[in-house]
């Protein structure tokens, strides 16, 4: 059986700020669905993507209550990818840059996310088959 490939992806944008985040997460999701192992290193604002305290809200302009608005939250996307990767036996690691977490007060994350350093990024990238940086604009 051929060995699965592994990619390392760096994200930088905070949630709800840029389309890049959604496009990049679509790429990560597509890779995981193909059985490719993925490491995500979240740098700067991206450490807030798995922030535990994101909450959905209603939308009075559209007359939607919370349930009707059904606002997707990045932490749900991340949690969903963690869960489906686990079910599929694919490795998915999400590391938040520790210093970026500290300065943003973003320490409370969903389960499955760990804190790391640029040395972790280097190690992961070196051990990966390929890597991708999605920097902020």
């Amino acid at each position: 059986m051929s060995k699965s490939k592994t990619f390392t992806v760096v994200l930088m944008d905070a949630p709800f700020e840029s389309s890049r985040t959604t496009t990049a997460l679509r790429v990560v999701d597509a890779a995981l669905k193909r059985g490719i192992n993925v490491n995500v290193f979240a740098y700067e604002g991206a450490v807030l993507l798995p922030f535990k305290h994101q909450q959905p809200h209603a939308n009075a302009v559209h007359g939607h209550d919370v349930e009707q608005e059904d606002h997707p939250l990045p932490r749900e996307w991340v949690a969903g990818m963690i869960a489906s990767a686990k079910d599929a036996g694919t490795a998915f690691e999400w590391i938040n840059c520790g210093l970026c977490v500290d300065e943003r007060g973003a320490g409370e994350c969903i389960d499955g996310v760990r804190r790391g350093t640029p040395a972790d990024l280097w190690k992961m990238a070196t051990a990966s088959d390929n890597s991708l940086v999605v920097a902020t604009a």
Partner: peptide
């Protein structure tokens, strides 16, 4: 679609965003 980006990464392409 974004699957093409994954294809290129699998092929070892250098992908610049």
């Amino acid at each position: 679609d974004v699957g093409l980006i994954v294809d290129k990464l699998v092929r070892g392409s250098s992908v610049m965003w």
